[in-house]
Design a protein around this nucleic acid. Structure first.
Lengths: 192, 192
DNA sequence: CGTAGCTATAGCATTATTGCTATAGTAACT
DNA sequence: AGTTACTATAGCAATAATGCTATAGCTACG
Protein backbone atom coordinates (compact mmCIF):
# COMPACT_ATOMS: atom_id res chain seq x y z
CA UNK A 1 0.00 0.00 0.00
CA UNK A 2 2.87 2.39 -0.63
CA UNK A 3 0.85 4.47 -3.08
CA UNK A 4 -1.44 5.62 -0.28
CA UNK A 5 1.51 6.97 1.64
CA UNK A 6 3.22 8.45 -1.39
CA UNK A 7 0.08 10.42 -2.24
CA UNK A 8 -0.16 11.58 1.37
CA UNK A 9 3.46 12.68 1.15
CA UNK A 10 2.88 14.58 -2.08
CA UNK A 11 -0.04 16.41 -0.49
CA UNK A 12 2.22 18.50 1.70
CA UNK A 13 0.26 21.28 0.04
CA UNK A 14 -3.26 20.83 -1.44
CA UNK A 15 -3.36 19.49 -4.98
CA UNK A 16 -5.68 17.85 -7.50
CA UNK A 17 -5.31 14.33 -8.87
CA UNK A 18 -4.06 15.72 -12.13
CA UNK A 19 -1.23 17.59 -10.39
CA UNK A 20 -0.16 14.42 -8.63
CA UNK A 21 -0.15 12.58 -11.94
CA UNK A 22 2.23 15.20 -13.31
CA UNK A 23 4.45 14.77 -10.29
CA UNK A 24 4.75 11.04 -11.02
CA UNK A 25 5.87 11.94 -14.52
CA UNK A 26 8.57 14.27 -13.23
CA UNK A 27 10.21 14.09 -9.82
CA UNK A 28 8.48 11.05 -8.30
CA UNK A 29 9.53 8.97 -11.32
CA UNK A 30 12.72 8.36 -9.35
CA UNK A 31 11.01 5.98 -6.99
CA UNK A 32 7.46 5.18 -8.15
CA UNK A 33 5.01 5.38 -11.02
CA UNK A 34 1.24 5.54 -11.15
CA UNK A 35 -1.37 6.29 -13.79
CA UNK A 36 -4.24 8.75 -13.29
CA UNK A 37 -6.63 5.78 -13.48
CA UNK A 38 -5.04 4.52 -10.28
CA UNK A 39 -4.55 7.89 -8.60
CA UNK A 40 -8.19 9.05 -8.78
CA UNK A 41 -9.76 6.02 -7.07
CA UNK A 42 -6.96 5.97 -4.50
CA UNK A 43 -7.63 9.60 -3.56
CA UNK A 44 -11.32 8.77 -3.19
CA UNK A 45 -10.50 5.83 -0.95
CA UNK A 46 -8.19 7.97 1.18
CA UNK A 47 -10.95 10.54 1.58
CA UNK A 48 -13.43 7.86 2.65
CA UNK A 49 -10.82 6.63 5.11
CA UNK A 50 -10.62 10.12 6.59
CA UNK A 51 -7.00 10.75 5.60
CA UNK A 52 -7.88 13.35 3.01
CA UNK A 53 -10.51 16.04 2.56
CA UNK A 54 -11.49 17.51 -0.79
CA UNK A 55 -13.31 20.51 -2.22
CA UNK A 56 -14.24 21.50 -5.74
CA UNK A 57 -12.43 24.52 -7.09
CA UNK A 58 -13.31 26.26 -10.37
CA UNK A 59 -10.48 25.90 -12.85
CA UNK A 60 -9.12 28.72 -14.99
CA UNK A 61 -8.78 26.44 -17.99
CA UNK A 62 -11.09 23.44 -18.02
CA UNK A 63 -13.63 21.74 -15.78
CA UNK A 64 -13.68 22.04 -12.00
CA UNK A 65 -10.74 20.62 -10.11
CA UNK A 66 -11.19 18.45 -7.05
CA UNK A 67 -8.47 19.64 -4.70
CA UNK A 68 -7.37 17.31 -1.90
CA UNK A 69 -5.60 18.09 1.32
CA UNK A 70 -4.43 16.02 4.24
CA UNK A 71 -6.52 15.78 7.37
CA UNK A 72 -4.74 15.54 10.75
CA UNK A 73 -5.39 11.77 10.58
CA UNK A 74 -3.70 11.72 7.16
CA UNK A 75 -0.67 13.58 8.45
CA UNK A 76 -0.47 11.15 11.33
CA UNK A 77 -0.67 8.12 9.02
CA UNK A 78 2.09 9.58 6.86
CA UNK A 79 4.33 10.23 9.86
CA UNK A 80 3.78 6.67 11.11
CA UNK A 81 4.84 5.29 7.71
CA UNK A 82 7.89 7.54 7.57
CA UNK A 83 8.98 6.32 10.99
CA UNK A 84 8.73 2.65 9.94
CA UNK A 85 11.82 0.66 9.08
CA UNK A 86 13.25 1.33 5.61
CA UNK A 87 11.35 -0.89 3.19
CA UNK A 88 13.79 -2.35 0.70
CA UNK A 89 10.99 -4.41 -0.80
CA UNK A 90 11.18 -6.90 -3.66
CA UNK A 91 12.88 -5.42 -6.65
CA UNK A 92 11.19 -6.10 -9.98
CA UNK A 93 13.94 -5.82 -12.55
CA UNK A 94 12.69 -7.08 -15.91
CA UNK A 95 15.96 -6.22 -17.61
CA UNK A 96 17.99 -8.35 -15.19
CA UNK A 97 15.42 -11.13 -15.65
CA UNK A 98 15.95 -10.90 -19.40
CA UNK A 99 19.69 -10.99 -18.98
CA UNK A 100 19.53 -13.92 -16.55
CA UNK A 101 17.78 -16.12 -19.12
CA UNK A 102 19.56 -14.69 -22.14
CA UNK A 103 22.18 -17.41 -21.75
CA UNK A 104 19.58 -19.91 -22.96
CA UNK A 105 19.76 -18.41 -26.44
CA UNK A 106 23.37 -19.59 -26.50
CA UNK A 107 24.43 -16.67 -28.68
CA UNK A 108 27.05 -14.27 -27.23
CA UNK A 109 26.18 -11.72 -29.94
CA UNK A 110 22.66 -11.46 -28.52
CA UNK A 111 24.11 -10.77 -25.09
CA UNK A 112 26.42 -8.16 -26.56
CA UNK A 113 23.58 -6.44 -28.39
CA UNK A 114 21.45 -6.50 -25.25
CA UNK A 115 24.14 -4.90 -23.09
CA UNK A 116 24.77 -2.14 -25.62
CA UNK A 117 21.03 -1.37 -25.74
CA UNK A 118 20.82 -1.30 -21.98
CA UNK A 119 23.86 0.93 -21.80
CA UNK A 120 22.23 3.47 -24.09
CA UNK A 121 19.01 3.56 -22.06
CA UNK A 122 21.00 4.04 -18.87
CA UNK A 123 23.08 6.85 -20.39
CA UNK A 124 19.85 8.62 -21.37
CA UNK A 125 18.38 8.24 -17.90
CA UNK A 126 21.59 9.42 -16.30
CA UNK A 127 21.73 12.47 -18.55
CA UNK A 128 18.24 13.48 -17.34
CA UNK A 129 19.23 13.01 -13.70
CA UNK A 130 22.43 15.00 -14.16
CA UNK A 131 20.52 17.87 -15.75
CA UNK A 132 18.17 18.03 -12.78
CA UNK A 133 21.11 17.74 -10.40
CA UNK A 134 22.81 20.70 -12.05
CA UNK A 135 19.61 22.72 -11.91
CA UNK A 136 19.33 22.06 -8.19
CA UNK A 137 22.98 22.90 -7.60
CA UNK A 138 22.55 26.07 -9.64
CA UNK A 139 19.63 27.22 -7.48
CA UNK A 140 21.69 26.99 -4.30
CA UNK A 141 25.44 27.43 -3.97
CA UNK A 142 25.92 25.17 -0.96
CA UNK A 143 24.17 22.01 0.16
CA UNK A 144 24.24 23.21 3.73
CA UNK A 145 22.05 26.20 2.94
CA UNK A 146 19.02 24.45 1.46
CA UNK A 147 15.96 23.59 3.51
CA UNK A 148 15.67 20.21 5.20
CA UNK A 149 13.02 19.21 2.66
CA UNK A 150 15.01 20.38 -0.35
CA UNK A 151 17.95 18.41 0.93
CA UNK A 152 15.92 15.20 0.97
CA UNK A 153 14.79 15.78 -2.58
CA UNK A 154 18.36 16.36 -3.67
CA UNK A 155 19.62 13.26 -1.87
CA UNK A 156 16.90 11.08 -3.43
CA UNK A 157 18.08 12.25 -6.84
CA UNK A 158 21.65 11.37 -5.88
CA UNK A 159 20.46 7.84 -5.10
CA UNK A 160 19.13 7.61 -8.65
CA UNK A 161 22.42 8.89 -10.06
CA UNK A 162 24.61 6.51 -8.06
CA UNK A 163 22.49 3.46 -8.93
CA UNK A 164 22.36 4.35 -12.63
CA UNK A 165 26.14 4.76 -12.59
CA UNK A 166 26.51 1.37 -10.90
CA UNK A 167 24.31 -0.26 -13.56
CA UNK A 168 26.41 1.37 -16.27
CA UNK A 169 29.59 0.11 -14.63
CA UNK A 170 28.01 -3.35 -14.57
CA UNK A 171 27.32 -3.17 -18.32
CA UNK A 172 30.95 -2.31 -18.96
CA UNK A 173 32.30 -4.99 -16.64
CA UNK A 174 30.05 -7.58 -18.24
CA UNK A 175 30.95 -6.50 -21.78
CA UNK A 176 34.64 -6.79 -20.90
CA UNK A 177 34.24 -10.27 -19.42
CA UNK A 178 32.20 -11.31 -22.42
CA UNK A 179 34.93 -10.15 -24.80
CA UNK A 180 37.53 -12.04 -22.77
CA UNK A 181 35.42 -15.20 -22.99
CA UNK A 182 35.12 -14.77 -26.73
CA UNK A 183 38.84 -14.39 -27.37
CA UNK A 184 39.52 -17.42 -25.16
CA UNK A 185 36.99 -19.38 -27.16
CA UNK A 186 38.47 -18.18 -30.49
CA UNK A 187 41.97 -19.22 -29.40
CA UNK A 188 40.72 -22.60 -28.20
CA UNK A 189 39.08 -23.37 -31.56
CA UNK A 190 42.04 -21.83 -33.40
CA UNK A 191 44.50 -24.13 -31.64
CA UNK A 192 42.26 -27.17 -32.04
CA UNK B 1 3.46 -9.74 -18.17
CA UNK B 2 7.05 -10.45 -17.22
CA UNK B 3 6.09 -13.32 -14.91
CA UNK B 4 4.95 -15.41 -17.87
CA UNK B 5 8.36 -15.07 -19.47
CA UNK B 6 10.28 -15.56 -16.24
CA UNK B 7 8.45 -18.85 -15.63
CA UNK B 8 9.18 -19.92 -19.21
CA UNK B 9 12.83 -19.08 -18.61
CA UNK B 10 12.93 -21.06 -15.38
CA UNK B 11 11.50 -24.06 -17.18
CA UNK B 12 14.70 -24.73 -19.08
CA UNK B 13 14.23 -28.14 -17.49
CA UNK B 14 10.83 -29.53 -16.38
CA UNK B 15 9.71 -28.47 -12.90
CA UNK B 16 6.65 -28.27 -10.67
CA UNK B 17 5.08 -25.05 -9.40
CA UNK B 18 6.50 -25.70 -5.98
CA UNK B 19 10.05 -25.87 -7.37
CA UNK B 20 9.59 -22.55 -9.15
CA UNK B 21 8.35 -21.02 -5.92
CA UNK B 22 11.56 -22.14 -4.23
CA UNK B 23 13.57 -20.61 -7.04
CA UNK B 24 11.91 -17.23 -6.42
CA UNK B 25 12.98 -17.51 -2.81
CA UNK B 26 16.60 -18.18 -3.77
CA UNK B 27 18.27 -17.16 -7.02
CA UNK B 28 15.42 -15.35 -8.77
CA UNK B 29 15.03 -13.07 -5.73
CA UNK B 30 17.67 -10.93 -7.43
CA UNK B 31 15.23 -9.66 -10.04
CA UNK B 32 11.67 -10.76 -9.21
CA UNK B 33 9.36 -12.19 -6.60
CA UNK B 34 6.15 -14.21 -6.83
CA UNK B 35 3.99 -16.19 -4.44
CA UNK B 36 2.79 -19.73 -5.10
CA UNK B 37 -0.75 -18.37 -5.26
CA UNK B 38 0.29 -16.44 -8.32
CA UNK B 39 2.56 -19.08 -9.82
CA UNK B 40 0.00 -21.94 -9.96
CA UNK B 41 -2.70 -20.06 -11.91
CA UNK B 42 -0.07 -18.57 -14.20
CA UNK B 43 1.26 -22.03 -15.07
CA UNK B 44 -2.28 -23.14 -15.82
CA UNK B 45 -2.83 -20.15 -18.06
CA UNK B 46 0.44 -20.80 -19.90
CA UNK B 47 -0.63 -24.39 -20.47
CA UNK B 48 -4.00 -23.30 -21.87
CA UNK B 49 -2.10 -20.87 -24.10
CA UNK B 50 -0.04 -23.77 -25.42
CA UNK B 51 3.29 -22.52 -24.09
CA UNK B 52 3.56 -25.27 -21.49
CA UNK B 53 2.60 -28.93 -21.20
CA UNK B 54 2.15 -30.76 -17.91
CA UNK B 55 1.95 -34.27 -16.57
CA UNK B 56 1.28 -35.69 -13.13
CA UNK B 57 4.20 -37.39 -11.47
CA UNK B 58 3.96 -39.41 -8.24
CA UNK B 59 5.96 -37.73 -5.49
CA UNK B 60 8.30 -39.54 -3.11
CA UNK B 61 7.17 -37.43 -0.19
CA UNK B 62 3.71 -35.97 -0.53
CA UNK B 63 0.91 -35.74 -3.06
CA UNK B 64 1.40 -35.95 -6.81
CA UNK B 65 3.41 -33.21 -8.46
CA UNK B 66 2.24 -31.53 -11.62
CA UNK B 67 5.41 -31.16 -13.66
CA UNK B 68 5.48 -28.55 -16.43
CA UNK B 69 7.71 -28.28 -19.45
CA UNK B 70 7.98 -25.85 -22.31
CA UNK B 71 6.39 -26.62 -25.65
CA UNK B 72 8.12 -25.46 -28.84
CA UNK B 73 5.66 -22.52 -28.86
CA UNK B 74 6.75 -21.69 -25.31
CA UNK B 75 10.42 -21.77 -26.23
CA UNK B 76 9.68 -19.50 -29.16
CA UNK B 77 7.75 -17.02 -26.97
CA UNK B 78 10.66 -16.96 -24.53
CA UNK B 79 13.20 -16.35 -27.28
CA UNK B 80 11.08 -13.50 -28.67
CA UNK B 81 10.98 -11.84 -25.24
CA UNK B 82 14.72 -12.27 -24.75
CA UNK B 83 15.38 -10.60 -28.07
CA UNK B 84 13.25 -7.57 -27.18
CA UNK B 85 14.85 -4.32 -26.09
CA UNK B 86 16.10 -4.26 -22.48
CA UNK B 87 13.14 -3.32 -20.31
CA UNK B 88 14.30 -0.89 -17.63
CA UNK B 89 10.71 -0.48 -16.46
CA UNK B 90 9.43 1.71 -13.63
CA UNK B 91 11.36 1.18 -10.48
CA UNK B 92 9.26 0.84 -7.35
CA UNK B 93 11.53 1.90 -4.52
CA UNK B 94 9.51 2.28 -1.33
CA UNK B 95 12.63 3.09 0.70
CA UNK B 96 13.53 6.02 -1.55
CA UNK B 97 9.90 7.15 -1.39
CA UNK B 98 10.12 7.11 2.39
CA UNK B 99 13.36 9.07 2.33
CA UNK B 100 11.99 11.58 -0.16
CA UNK B 101 9.16 12.55 2.18
CA UNK B 102 11.12 12.11 5.39
CA UNK B 103 12.08 15.78 5.16
CA UNK B 104 8.49 16.63 6.06
CA UNK B 105 9.06 15.33 9.59
CA UNK B 106 11.59 18.14 9.95
CA UNK B 107 13.75 16.07 12.27
CA UNK B 108 17.33 15.31 11.13
CA UNK B 109 17.59 12.62 13.80
CA UNK B 110 14.81 10.66 12.09
CA UNK B 111 16.72 10.88 8.81
CA UNK B 112 19.87 9.72 10.55
CA UNK B 113 18.11 6.77 12.15
CA UNK B 114 16.51 5.85 8.82
CA UNK B 115 19.82 5.84 6.96
CA UNK B 116 21.49 3.70 9.60
CA UNK B 117 18.63 1.18 9.41
CA UNK B 118 18.82 1.10 5.63
CA UNK B 119 22.57 0.70 5.80
CA UNK B 120 22.19 -2.38 7.98
CA UNK B 121 19.64 -4.02 5.65
CA UNK B 122 21.90 -3.37 2.68
CA UNK B 123 24.93 -4.83 4.46
CA UNK B 124 22.92 -7.97 5.18
CA UNK B 125 21.79 -8.28 1.58
CA UNK B 126 25.28 -7.69 0.31
CA UNK B 127 26.69 -10.35 2.64
CA UNK B 128 24.28 -12.90 1.14
CA UNK B 129 25.23 -11.91 -2.40
CA UNK B 130 28.93 -12.08 -1.60
CA UNK B 131 28.55 -15.56 -0.12
CA UNK B 132 26.86 -16.78 -3.30
CA UNK B 133 29.48 -15.02 -5.40
CA UNK B 134 32.26 -16.81 -3.53
CA UNK B 135 30.50 -20.15 -3.91
CA UNK B 136 30.27 -19.61 -7.66
CA UNK B 137 33.91 -18.52 -7.88
CA UNK B 138 34.89 -21.57 -5.82
CA UNK B 139 33.14 -23.93 -8.21
CA UNK B 140 35.09 -22.62 -11.19
CA UNK B 141 38.61 -21.17 -11.17
CA UNK B 142 38.19 -18.87 -14.17
CA UNK B 143 35.22 -16.96 -15.53
CA UNK B 144 36.22 -17.89 -19.04
CA UNK B 145 35.72 -21.60 -18.36
CA UNK B 146 32.10 -21.62 -17.19
CA UNK B 147 29.23 -22.31 -19.54
CA UNK B 148 27.47 -19.49 -21.34
CA UNK B 149 24.45 -19.99 -19.08
CA UNK B 150 26.46 -20.08 -15.86
CA UNK B 151 28.17 -16.89 -16.92
CA UNK B 152 24.81 -15.10 -17.25
CA UNK B 153 23.79 -16.24 -13.79
CA UNK B 154 27.07 -15.02 -12.36
CA UNK B 155 26.81 -11.65 -14.11
CA UNK B 156 23.23 -11.14 -12.88
CA UNK B 157 24.49 -11.65 -9.34
CA UNK B 158 27.24 -9.09 -9.99
CA UNK B 159 24.55 -6.60 -10.97
CA UNK B 160 22.96 -7.13 -7.56
CA UNK B 161 26.30 -6.66 -5.83
CA UNK B 162 27.21 -3.47 -7.68
CA UNK B 163 23.81 -1.88 -7.09
CA UNK B 164 23.79 -2.80 -3.40
CA UNK B 165 27.27 -1.29 -3.08
CA UNK B 166 26.08 1.87 -4.80
CA UNK B 167 23.13 2.13 -2.40
CA UNK B 168 25.50 1.69 0.52
CA UNK B 169 27.79 4.41 -0.85
CA UNK B 170 24.72 6.63 -1.11
CA UNK B 171 23.86 6.03 2.55
CA UNK B 172 27.37 7.06 3.55
CA UNK B 173 27.43 10.12 1.29
CA UNK B 174 24.06 11.22 2.63
CA UNK B 175 25.03 10.63 6.26
CA UNK B 176 28.18 12.72 5.72
CA UNK B 177 26.24 15.59 4.12
CA UNK B 178 23.69 15.41 6.90
CA UNK B 179 26.40 15.70 9.55
CA UNK B 180 27.91 18.68 7.71
CA UNK B 181 24.50 20.38 7.66
CA UNK B 182 24.13 19.77 11.37
CA UNK B 183 27.49 21.28 12.34
CA UNK B 184 26.78 24.30 10.10
CA UNK B 185 23.44 24.71 11.81
CA UNK B 186 25.01 24.37 15.27
CA UNK B 187 27.64 27.02 14.46
CA UNK B 188 25.01 29.33 13.02
CA UNK B 189 22.90 29.20 16.19
CA UNK B 190 26.05 29.38 18.31
CA UNK B 191 27.15 32.62 16.61
CA UNK B 192 23.66 34.10 16.70
C1' DC C 1 -16.43 27.79 -37.56
C1' DG C 2 -13.88 23.53 -37.16
C1' DT C 3 -10.56 21.03 -35.12
C1' DA C 4 -6.70 19.91 -32.75
C1' DG C 5 -4.63 19.96 -28.22
C1' DC C 6 -4.48 20.57 -23.33
C1' DT C 7 -6.72 20.24 -18.71
C1' DA C 8 -9.48 17.48 -15.70
C1' DT C 9 -12.20 13.76 -14.02
C1' DA C 10 -14.36 9.29 -14.45
C1' DG C 11 -15.30 4.47 -15.52
C1' DC C 12 -14.34 -0.17 -17.07
C1' DA C 13 -12.12 -4.53 -18.26
C1' DT C 14 -8.32 -7.15 -17.51
C1' DT C 15 -4.48 -8.69 -15.39
C1' DA C 16 -1.12 -8.71 -11.45
C1' DT C 17 -0.26 -9.42 -6.82
C1' DT C 18 -0.87 -10.27 -2.02
C1' DG C 19 -2.48 -12.59 1.91
C1' DC C 20 -5.23 -15.85 3.64
C1' DT C 21 -7.29 -20.42 4.14
C1' DA C 22 -8.17 -25.31 2.90
C1' DT C 23 -6.86 -29.90 1.85
C1' DA C 24 -4.06 -33.96 1.85
C1' DG C 25 -0.33 -37.04 1.68
C1' DT C 26 4.14 -38.27 3.67
C1' DA C 27 7.83 -38.32 7.14
C1' DA C 28 9.78 -38.02 11.53
C1' DC C 29 9.46 -37.83 16.10
C1' DT C 30 7.11 -39.12 20.86
C1' DA D 1 -1.68 -43.15 18.04
C1' DG D 2 -0.81 -38.26 18.11
C1' DT D 3 1.60 -34.34 16.80
C1' DT D 4 4.43 -31.56 14.14
C1' DA D 5 6.58 -30.37 9.94
C1' DC D 6 7.26 -30.52 5.14
C1' DT D 7 5.66 -31.15 0.28
C1' DA D 8 2.18 -29.95 -2.98
C1' DT D 9 -1.88 -28.04 -4.98
C1' DA D 10 -6.01 -25.18 -4.89
C1' DG D 11 -9.19 -21.37 -4.20
C1' DC D 12 -10.72 -16.84 -2.81
C1' DA D 13 -11.11 -12.02 -1.55
C1' DA D 14 -9.08 -7.74 -1.80
C1' DT D 15 -6.19 -4.60 -3.54
C1' DA D 16 -2.83 -2.90 -7.14
C1' DA D 17 -1.92 -1.67 -11.62
C1' DT D 18 -2.39 -1.20 -16.62
C1' DG D 19 -4.58 0.21 -20.70
C1' DC D 20 -8.42 1.79 -22.76
C1' DT D 21 -12.38 4.82 -23.56
C1' DA D 22 -15.66 8.71 -22.46
C1' DT D 23 -16.82 13.30 -21.32
C1' DA D 24 -16.34 18.19 -21.15
C1' DG D 25 -14.49 22.73 -20.92
C1' DC D 26 -11.24 25.76 -22.61
C1' DT D 27 -7.47 27.62 -25.86
C1' DA D 28 -5.28 28.48 -30.04
C1' DC D 29 -4.61 28.01 -34.83
C1' DG D 30 -6.13 28.55 -39.57
Amino acid sequence: MSLDHILLGMLERPAAGYDLGREFESSARLFWSAELSQIYPTLKRLEKKGHLASREVPSERGPNRRVYERTPAGTEALAAWLREEPKLGHSRLPHIAQFYFLGELGDPDETHRFLLGLRRSLEERLAVYRTIEEMMRHDCPSLEDVSHEQYHRYAALRAGVLVAEARLAWCDETLTDLAARETTRANATGVA
